[in-house]
């Protein structure tokens, strides 16, 4: 197992390099341009100067190597410096990855966005899982019962109605008509006492529930399917025949086995937390990583898009590994050697 993990980790390095190169090439090839969103009153010659000042005059391989250097050497050094609190080398001269739109270091932007994304999307994912498992279990156990039918229907609705629709409906009902929750997320809010905590909860309710509904809808179907598959297995009959209590059969034997694939699906979904939920963030103005990415993509802010997508790729590779390992741990029938 350890051997396997190490091998996978070794393999991950060249993989990620290749991925970063492909992303970079793709972004470079794309015909959108960082000056595309500027007012037309800025004449073409000035636009050309802007492009040059962004470093677009350099050939493609050079720019890629710069990015590699900045991402793998300069930025980690900077972070280390910040954590340790004393300068390492010539930190002022060290070039950082800068966003083209804000001209500020990309890593700082990402760090700034982390709290709200983790708060909203992370919580939504957590609640989604929390809701999905019991619903899935009951639906499967009482297949075709009213509860199952209702559950199926609700998850179908939750799944097929897009979040931008549910989001707006929520705003119209709870913000405009009832005035219960704010329609705009305040990223400046600092939780210091009960009243600001309460405010934070209020502003999180709507985005979190919209997203949690969506996540739960998806996941509960999966739990249900997995449970059904296990309920028909021989070992369940054996367990019942042995005279085990139904609760024990269901919650100890069946659930445990059914959760094997579910856990991996959950693990595989964790990177999406970091990529943010673009639509939901837009609607409630959570302005997290998702909004950062979409603005960057639309504005052809290549350094920012490159860095964000690459971090996302790292997370995907990492959680893929974790999912595989979990699979091995939970299901002894699977052997990696």
């Amino acid at each position: 197992m350890l051997n396997y993990t190490l091998r996978r980790l070794m393999f991950a390095v060249p993989t990620l390099l290749v991925i970063s190169f492909i992303i970079f090439a793709l972004l470079d090839l794309a015909p959108n341009d960082p000056t595309g969103n500027l007012p037309l009153t800025i004449p073409p010659e000035v636009r050309e100067q802007i492009r040059q000042s962004l470093g677009l005059g350099e050939p493609f391989p050079i720019r890629y190597l710069y990015w590699l250097q900045q991402f793998f050497i300069n930025e980690p050094l900077n972070l280390l410096e910040k954590i340790l609190g004393f300068p390492i080398g010539d930190s002022a001269e060290r070039l950082r990855i800068r966003s083209w739109a804000t001209r500020s270091p990309v890593v700082d932007l990402i760090i700034e966005r982390m709290p709200q994304t983790l708060m909203v999307v992370g919580f939504a994912y957590f609640f989604g899982v929390l809701i999905a498992i019991p619903i899935g279990v009951i639906s499967a156990y009482k297949q075709y019962s009213i509860f199952d039918q209702v559950g199926t229907f609700v998850s179908m609705v939750g799944f097929s109605v897009p979040t931008f629709f549910t989001g707006v409906v929520f705003i119209v009902i709870f913000s405009v008509n009832l005035q219960w929750f704010p329609s705009i997320y305040d990223t400046q809010l600092e939780v210091t006492d009960w009243s600001s905590f309460w405010q934070q909860v209020r502003q999180m309710v709507m985005p979190v529930s919209v997203l949690a509904l969506y996540n739960a809808a998806q996941l509960s179907r999966f739990v249900r399917a997995s449970m059904l598959d296990n309920l028909n297995q021989d070992y369940v009959r054996t367990a019942r025949a042995k005279g085990m209590k139904e609760r024990v059969v269901l919650l100890v034997h069946v659930l445990r086995n059914s959760l094997i694939p579910v856990v991996t699906v959950i693990a595989l979904g964790i990177p999406t937390i970091f990529s943010g939920a673009i639509i939901t963030e837009q609607i409630f103005r959570v302005n997290g990583l998702g909004q950062l990415l979409i603005i960057a993509i639309q504005g052809a802010d290549i350094p920012l898009v490159q860095t964000l997508t690459f971090i996302f790729a790292v997370l995907i590779v990492l959680f893929n590994l974790i999912a595989d390992l979990l699979y091995g741990i939970l299901d002894p029938r699977i052997r990696y050697d």
Binding site: V18, A30, I297, Q298, V305, F312, A313, N320
Partner: peptide
């Protein structure tokens, strides 16, 4: 890893 690559690719570009 190919799957990982496709998951990470930004769609609009």
């Amino acid at each position: 890893r190919l799957t990982d690559l496709f998951l990470a690719l930004p769609l609009l570009p």
